[in-house]
Amino acid sequence: MRMRTAWKATLASAAGALALAAGAAAFVWSGWYDVAATRQHTQAVYDLLEQVMRHSIHARAGEEDWVAPASDARLRGLRLYEAHCLQCHGAPGVAPARFALGMTPLPVNLVHTARQWTPAQIHWVVSEGIKMTGMPAWRFRLAPHEIDEVVAFVATLPTLSPASYQALAASGPAGDAGTDGPTEPDAETWPVDRARGLTALQQYACTSCHAVPGAVGSQPAVGPPLHGLAQRKYLAGHLPNSPDNLVRWIRFPQRVAPRSAMPDLGVSERDARDMAAYLLGPAAD
């Protein structure tokens, strides 16, 4: 009797699992879900995604202390904010760029963010980005001290009226925001990090043209696949394949092959070395 009961329970569980799988497959293949940006998620889906994001950031940023930069960092952070953040997030009395007004999800107003999040959590978000939102990982685009300066400015947004923002924006020299880039002065002395190299390949959008081993995505066929790169004799058709030459090809493709469609993506020395180490390693075979 017990065996019969257990067998029935197993069959019922299997039938339930099959029904669930069939329902999920029908949902996907029917095209019922509207992916248009003009159709918002339901409130329940939005709330679920919001809670997942909040708990994820809290778990990773933690409550560690964030050391604010020097007192003059706010103005330098403003210049960086104007160059890289204003287009999506706007500022007190300043609208985002027109393209950002229709993004889904809509980029948040950072006055609200500065009220809700600690500087350490904001620093983590700026550095690492948030998937499925369009928010990039700025640690591949700005130097560490520049990220600190952006966070220092964002933390002051709730204190700024439109008039005080305009006054601050008009004060001091315009500067040359973001010229440092993410490269450390001693980039060549850093030990290569192959795992970071895969992340860099994705962060520089290499996966928009190439199928990259280990990278999740659509596996495009615009450029040649990058599997087994270590076995190739030449790069760009004529450059002997070596780690240093691959770094050169990644950073300055138009110099190596002027007729190539591969653009100069502004890859830093450190990032290129990590990318080359990944592509020439065993995981990329």
Rank of each mutant, 00 (worst) to 15 (best):
R141M: 09
A155F: 07
A200Y: 03
T199L: 13
L198S: 06
P182G: 04
T179Y: 08
R194H: 04
H123G: 03
S171D: 15
S218I: 15
D186S: 13
F153T: 03
Q116G: 12
Y204Q: 08
T207N: 15
A137Y: 03
S171L: 12
T133W: 03
V154I: 14
R139P: 00
A187T: 08
A169Y: 07
A205F: 12
R196F: 00
R194C: 02
V126I: 14
L157S: 05
T199Q: 11
A211M: 06
I130W: 01
A221G: 08
D148P: 07
P185C: 08
A177Q: 05
M132L: 13
G223L: 00
M132R: 14
Y165H: 15
Q219L: 13
E149F: 01
D176N: 15
V192I: 10
V222G: 04
V192Q: 08
A155I: 07
D193Q: 10
G178N: 07
A187G: 03
V126L: 06
D186G: 11
G134N: 08
L168Q: 11
G223Q: 00
P220F: 08
P191F: 00
Q116W: 14
P182C: 06
G129I: 01
P220T: 11
T207M: 09
Q219M: 12
V216D: 15
A195R: 15
P136I: 09
M132E: 10
K131L: 02
A137V: 04
T179I: 13
R139C: 02
P144C: 09
W124T: 05
R141E: 07
H145L: 01
C209Y: 09
A163E: 15
A152Y: 00
L142Q: 07
G175Y: 00
D176A: 13
T156Y: 00
R196A: 11
P158V: 12
P173R: 15
G181W: 03
G175L: 03
L168T: 07
V150D: 00
V222D: 04
T118I: 06
V192Y: 03
V126N: 02
R141Y: 01
L198H: 05
A205G: 10
A211N: 13
A211G: 07
W190P: 01
H145T: 11
A177C: 06
H145P: 09
T199P: 00
P185D: 13
A155P: 05
A167Q: 14
Q121N: 11
E128C: 08
G197H: 01
V154H: 03
P225R: 14
P224L: 11
A143F: 02
G214K: 04
Q116L: 15
G197V: 01
T118H: 05
D180R: 13
A167P: 01
E146G: 05
S218A: 15
D180M: 14
V150R: 01
A170D: 13
G214I: 02
P213M: 06
G175Q: 06
R139E: 12
G134K: 11
S161Y: 00
T133S: 12
E128T: 09
P119M: 07
A143S: 14
V216G: 11
V126T: 05
L142H: 04
